[in-house]
């Protein structure tokens, strides 16, 4: 019974770390640019395919393919931000919130439909990271899950160190707290917007490449994780990177335990998202600003 519980928690943690990776990217974009990126799930999907084709066309080892996927989605994010989001920083756009919603939603539709045309509608599966697996009593956790969790944890630790210890991370934090103040101390806010969007896209892409060997690749694979990411961003407290990391792990574990202990195993999986929603509702009832939330932020 104990090993079953441990297995559920480990499984939840793996999914949670991937969720956290996606949500951390979404949070960075939100806190620096003050926009919700509705195209985030599509960037996650593109990351998955980028990893797949890096392995099959370039012969890159599966683990390095994750880095290739992150680099590819970073570049894609930077190009999109420069072309489509740059007007937000000028007076040419009057209704900035609405503009950002429309163009990021357009990014989602464009990428998902382009993926159907380019990669085909059928599922693809990249090779495993490893054939090894971990046995907990009678139960087994696959090596792919462990590698994905380990890599996601490393990326999240790296992200935290980058945000806290580097001048670029500090500049991103400064812009997220006050754009005017950041500008008068010599920080080029536009450069930070580009960096933040590229970084957020890279984290989503990395998550997509990590999850690909566990589940499969499909053009619509980003739909559900992006919804989970929005839940996590609210759960963790909008704009808080540590909040999104802890929120992601919490959501993964709650979903896994909910499914694992639901009385009717045939229906348990169908209720997976309901457990996440329940967690969100309870959290917001107790802490309306989320776990690490702060006052309402909106487009400046």
């Amino acid at each position: 019974m104990t090993s079953y519980f441990v297995l559920q928690v480990l499984n939840g943690l793996v999914t949670g770390l991937i969720y956290a990776l996606i949500a951390a990217g979404l949070t960075i974009i939100f806190s620096v640019l003050k926009i919700v990126n509705f195209g985030h799930g599509a960037l996650y999907m593109i990351g998955g395919y980028a990893g797949y084709y890096a392995i099959h066309l370039l012969g890159v080892p599966p683990l390095f393919a994750v880095l290739v996927a992150m680099a590819a989605t970073f570049v894609l994010g930077v190009i999109f931000e420069r072309l489509m989001l740059a007007p937000l920083y000028t007076n040419k756009v009057d209704r900035k919130d609405e503009y950002a919603t429309i163009v990021t939603f357009a990014l989602f539709m464009l990428l998902e439909n382009a993926a159907i045309v380019s990669f085909g509608p059928f599922n693809k599966r990249p090779p495993s990271f490893t054939d090894a697996s971990l046995h907990v009593g009678m139960l087994t956790i696959t090596g792919d899950r462990l590698v994905a969790a380990g890599m996601a944890a490393l990326l999240l630790i790296g992200l935290s160190l980058f945000m806290q210890r580097t001048s670029l991370g500090q500049a991103l934090d400064a812009v997220s707290q006050n754009r005017d103040a950041a500008a008068i101390i010599g920080i080029d806010a536009k450069r930070m917007f580009t960096t933040a969007f590229g970084l957020g896209a890279a984290l989503a892409g990395g998550a997509g490449a990590l999850i690909a060997p566990i589940f499969t690749l499909s053009p619509s694979m980003g739909d559900l994780p992006s919804v989970q990411a929005y839940i996590i961003v609210v759960l963790g407290g909008m704009g808080s990177v540590p909040g999104s990391i802890i929120g992601g792990m919490l959501l993964g574990i709650v979903e896994a335990l909910g499914v694992g202990y639901y009385p009717d195993p045939n229906r348990a999986l169908a209720y997976s998202n309901a457990f996440g929603a329940l967690l969100l509702i309870i959290t917001l009832l107790v802490r309306p600003t989320g776990l690490f939330g702060r006052a309402h932020v909106r487009m400046e």
């Binding site: 001048s167 934090d173 707290q177 006050n178 005017d180 500008a183 010599g186 920080i187």
Partner: peptide, 30 residues
């Protein structure tokens, strides 16, 4: 700012969630 112009505002615009020390370190590093 990079050309040597520093300024303050009527209502201070600080990095409110940073410590006082971090508020000063950030411009130096940036």
């Amino acid at each position: 700012a990079r050309s040597g112009v520093g300024r303050t505002f009527q209502i201070p615009r600080l990095f409110r969630r940073m410590s006082v020390l971090e508020n000063l370190i950030t411009p130096a590093l940036a």
